[in-house]
């Protein structure tokens, strides 16, 4: 029980730390980092590596933005098994739907309620 908390901290922190090293040592911008992570998450899912990682580190790999790549790809894979080629399109937002809808809706209301700093 305590182990999963420690592992979430250690693995999640490690992903962030590595990204910081890339930011500090290359010309990569934050946008490059975010996009790269999502693609890595997607590829890892295709290779079947993301689920074991999630099993091991829990929120340590589901909180970093690579998780978007995971849920998008997982949705596609599951739908493709069922519906073939059509599933490649239908499945993209199957699992990711809640996360992406929530980010748009929540971000909209936050922008409505608050004002930028003076």
């Amino acid at each position: 029980m305590v182990g999963i908390f420690l592992k979430a901290f250690l693995i999640g922190g490690l992903i962030c730390g590595i990204c910081q090293l890339i930011l500090d040592n290359t010309d990569y911008t934050p946008a490059h980092i975010m996009v790269s992570l999502v693609i890595i998450g997607s590829v890892f899912t295709g290779l079947g590596w993301y689920d074991p990682l999630k099993e091991f580190a829990g929120a340590g790999v589901t909180i970093p933005v690579s998780n978007f790549g995971y849920i998008l790809t997982k949705g596609v894979q599951e739908a493709a098994e069922k519906d073939g080629l059509l599933g490649l399109f239908k499945g993209v937002l199957d699992i990711a739907s809640a996360g992406i809808s929530a980010s748009v809706i929540i971000a909209f209301f936050m922008a409505l309620i608050f004002n930028p700093k003076e």
Partner: peptide, 17 residues
């Protein structure tokens, strides 16, 4: 910078867990 990123990133994941 690495340590700060590690600490804060890890803590956010811990909160998620």
């Amino acid at each position: 910078n690495f340590l700060k990123a590690y600490l804060v990133g890890g803590t956010i994941c811990l909160i998620g867990q």
